[in-house]
Design a binder for these strands. Sequence first.
DNA 1: CGGAGTGTATGCTTTTCATCGAACACTCGG
DNA 2: CCGAGTGTTCGATGAAAAGCATACACTCCG
Lengths: 111, 111
Amino acid sequence: MAQRTSHRAAPEHTHPDDVSVQTALAALADPVRISLVRELAGSQEWSRSCGSFDVPVGKAALSHHFVVLRGAGLVEQRDEGPRRVNRLRRAEFEARFPGLLDLVLRDEPTV
Amino acid sequence: MAQRTSHRAAPEHTHPDDVSVQTALAALADPVRISLVRELAGSQEWSRSCGSFDVPVGKAALSHHFVVLRGAGLVEQRDEGPRRVNRLRRAEFEARFPGLLDLVLRDEPTV
DNA sequence: CGGAGTGTATGCTTTTCATCGAACACTCGG
DNA sequence: CCGAGTGTTCGATGAAAAGCATACACTCCG
């Protein structure tokens, strides 16, 4: 049979098309999540596990932020052995909210 | 001397150029403020007084929302007799955050 | 000058959200 | 099969934000 890297419950994802502007904006209006999105944008897809990000919060809070990012259609996750790796949903999100992601990525780190 | 419609303290304004993305997103991530911006976008400049908007909050809360909108560089206000009239800073905001305002204006009313 | 209309400021609830610590679940390597 | 590594869940806490009611300030009109 095919590969089967995990027996865990797959994370719930929301497609950007099913996300309201308000939800998208709220998801991006947080300094920690902005950091996550930026770091993710500068990395290869599926190369970053949740714990590999340089943000000043504990893992419980971090886990919560990924829930929000998934719920806004910004991030896709996949279980790979013991860790959960991430991908920024650039194209899909861009199609739903043209220009929005670029605004966040281009801007200088939060002052 | 020239006209002088008010002796009141002029409202404080922030230019979009001095606004961070995070602040801009936070300002637009609220249902009441989204309504205000949309209504404002559909009206002539300087035609709407603060109290003329159809939002389900008292006037104290409303006043607060306008403070936030001014602080994000989204709205400009001017005193005109007893009332304070508004203008959406379309061009300036668009120059600072290309596409952002359009996203909010195009989208269906918050579900 | 006094009253109606309009908006702001203040003080106080209520809600929401970010955070943490601790406990639990799953995967992999010995 | 146990232990280390990783991430989620739960409960509690603290801070921020939104709300309201009231009181105040300013403008206009009679």
